[in-house]
Computed example of a mutant assay.
Amino acid sequence: MSEKNSKAQEMHKVELIIGQILRIGVVVSAIVIALGIILMLVQGTGGYPNGVEPNSFQAIFAGVIALKPYAVMMLGLFLLILTPTLRVVVSIYAFAVEKDHLYVWITTVVLIILIIASIIGYLGH
């Protein structure tokens, strides 16, 4: 009974961590997007000429360092997209703790699909 109780406590902790990851991810991305909007209002421009946008990680991070509003907003959107992916990673750990090997494999396949889809989306821009 003690092992079952400790496993339940561990799962409860993991569920709390997953909830915190989702909340923190959404809040941080919203703050970053809001900062981008504020920068745009202050600067009066998105930081790029019409029709030009940062479309690579390097361009986004360079734009963020240069305080270009559109790049800051793109970073916020990237963080928002990354949040559920991080949740999948934590879920793999949670299922491993439960020793639920079927769900570890299923969730790992979901993570691989997410990564492949992200790469395809990035390369297909």
Rank of each mutant, 00 (worst) to 15 (best):
M1L: 05
M1G: 10
S2V: 11
E3C: 11
E3F: 06
E3M: 06
E3G: 09
K4S: 08
K4H: 04
N5F: 09
N5Q: 08
N5D: 12
N5E: 14
S6G: 10
S6K: 00
K7T: 00
K7Y: 12
Q9T: 12
M11V: 10
M11A: 11
H12E: 13
H12R: 11
K13L: 11
L16M: 13
L16I: 06
I17T: 11
I17M: 06
I18D: 07
I18F: 02
G19Q: 10
Q20C: 14
I21G: 04
L22V: 11
L22G: 14
L22R: 09
I24D: 07
I24Y: 00
G25D: 04
G25R: 00
G25P: 00
V27Y: 11
V27M: 01
V28K: 07
V28C: 03
V28G: 08
A30Q: 03
A30V: 03
A30G: 04
I31E: 02
V32F: 05
I33G: 00
A34L: 09
L35G: 03
G36I: 01
I38E: 02
I38W: 04
L39W: 01
L39N: 02
L41F: 05
L41E: 13
L41T: 13
Q43T: 03
G44F: 09
G44M: 10
T45F: 03
T45Y: 00
G46E: 05
Y48I: 06
P49A: 12
P49I: 01
P49T: 10
N50L: 15
N50T: 15
V52K: 12
E53I: 14
E53Y: 14
P54H: 02
P54G: 02
N55H: 15
S56E: 05
S56D: 07
S56C: 05
F57V: 14
F57N: 09
F57L: 15
F57S: 14
Q58H: 15
Q58V: 15
A59P: 12
F61R: 14
F61E: 09
G63N: 12
I65D: 15
L67V: 03
K68V: 08
P69I: 05
Y70A: 12
A71Y: 01
V72K: 02
V72N: 02
L75D: 04
L75G: 01
L75N: 03
G76F: 04
G76E: 00
L77Q: 15
F78W: 09
L79I: 15
P84Q: 01
T85I: 06
R87K: 13
R87A: 13
R87P: 06
V88Y: 09
S91V: 08
S91K: 13
I92G: 01
Y93M: 13
F95E: 03
A96N: 13
V97A: 06
V97M: 07
V97R: 09
V97Y: 02
D100Q: 12
H101N: 15
Y103P: 13
Y103Q: 13
V104A: 07
I106Q: 09
T108M: 07
V109K: 03
V109E: 10
L111A: 04
L111H: 05
I112R: 08
I112A: 11
I112K: 04
I115P: 00
A117Q: 05
S118C: 04
I119C: 04
I119S: 06
I119L: 06
G121I: 02
G121V: 03
G121C: 05
L123P: 04
L123C: 10
G124Y: 14
G124L: 14
